[in-house]
Nucleic acid binder design. Structure first.
Lengths: 251, 251
DNA sequence: GGATGGCTTTGATGTAGGTCAAAGGGAGGC
DNA sequence: GCCTCCCTTTGACCTACATCAAAGCCATCC
């Protein structure tokens, strides 16, 4: 039962001050590296926010490209759909991440984005962004950087899916989450899993039972502590060693 | 034993006329959609070509970003490397494809690119490209489109690796190759596999023996004919049906 | 407060694809 | 022309993960 809530006006123009210049995420997000004096031009670009309840879609595959979205708060997942109904989680996204770049190529979105909890996103009309990035080289750079990083991230996932076994995949996943929380100023060792075991499994190319079993094993081995969605990394070094697979030594 | 050939001068400035404007690939490649009158500015951008022999690297992971490369002829593979030596093929690339975008994010390449046969590429200094794309909106658009398509392509691979079984993966692979040859004006039904079974396997997250077995099975079932690297798609419809998995009917 | 329904855990069993092994074919080098 | 080396094919066996099944937990709804 997804918490669709009232379909209500998804566009919330009620914030008079949607300002990148005062946003704590600005160094992670699109405005990174922008001269403070130019910042107000970015503020104009991002003219409103949008709130989503858990389970709501930000957009669906097939929708035509209007805007990119920067996540201000909350966690989302992207899902690609196989024609025969199978779907796979392609990524988990959190504050500061930029979404929607899948649509630039063909003008239509190629995946669904779903809120895993209540979220807030900043909407960035794409044509304005293209325009402005012609005028502000640092903005252009940052956009390119973000798209490039997305490509590289995907390479990492391909490596994971193509050549790692279950334990390695899960270790890589947990360490990646940990690192992303750290980058955002949260604890690297203690956090909440916003997604279900099934979603993790889908992302990692495994079944939910396998996720559950491997988490239990990790816990027995003292690598982590899990209590439903609450997770603590108890021994990051050994967790990393599962990945390195060679050295149990200092990573 | 890779055919490294003489390390020789990799930069071949000997072509006086490296002109996008007269290149048969221009509509697939970076200049797509450029006004003919602006084309000479692109010609200036792409100021030289480079030839590679089979087995040579175009660049290696860690190399700093200097240029993007457009493939003029030949086939290449990209490989991502796991720290512990395992490597995985992340993609196969052919004429018209643009390489190197993995380095934009961090300034360093994140994968190796290796020629699977003798190749020729056009070198595009990245900072010039960024500069010029500020002045020519259609160039900017095309660059964004290409990067976006790369992201979407990766989603497809994730889906393949994460939720398809061996036969589906191989069918998807062959159909994808077929389609790419067709786009480039070659036969969609008959072509050469430039890569080994092992490389296909690496790309698809399978072992070479599995690739071999599945190809044999496909052949027995009359879906394809393979004779070493020569491949003919004998029944594209049924091959597509393996993917759709539901309807054996008209895809 | 009890009921309902998702999510998770754990066990028993099955299987796709991996691993190991051996032999056959082509292409390039001498 | 012959040799060598890689690539490929095919078979026999094994293992990691999927599948099926059942029971427990937590949150939410009534």
């Amino acid at each position: 039962m997804e918490n669709h809530g009232p379909p209500a006006s998804p566009l919330d123009r009620g914030h008079p001050h949607v300002a990148c210049s005062s946003c704590s995420l600005r160094e992670l997000c699109l405005p990174a590296g922008i001269d403070p004096r130019e910042m107000e031009r970015i503020d104009d670009l991002v003219n409103h926010r949008r709130k989503l309840k858990r389970g709501e879609h930000l957009y669906r595959a097939g929708a035509s490209l209007a805007s990119l979205y920067a996540i201000r708060s909350g966690t989302m997942k992207s899902c690609v759909l196989h024609e025969d109904g199978r779907e796979q989680v392609a990524g988990f996204h959190m504050m500061g991440d930029l979404l929607g770049m899948d649509a630039i190529g063909g003008g239509r979105h190629m995946c669904d984005i779903v809120a895993l909890e209540d979220c807030e996103v900043c909407e960035i009309p794409f044509s304005c962004l293209e325009q402005l990035s012609r005028e502000l080289p640092p903005l252009q750079r940052q956009l390119h950087r973000i798209m490039s990083r997305e490509i590289v991230r995907d390479y990492g996932v391909m490596l994971l899916l193509g050549s790692m076994k279950a334990e390695e995949r899960l270790a890589a996943f947990l360490l990646n989450l940990s690192q992303r929380f750290a980058t955002r100023g949260y604890s690297a060792s203690e956090f909440n899993l916003r997604m279900t075991r099934e979603e993790i499994g889908s992302y990692l190319g495994l079944k939910l039972e396998t996720i559950s079993r491997v988490l239990s094993r990790f816990q027995q081995d003292g690598l982590i502590e899990v209590h439903h969605k609450q997770l603590r990394i108890a021994d990051a070094k050994r967790l990393r060693a599962i990945l390195g697979q060679a050295s149990t030594g200092d990573a």
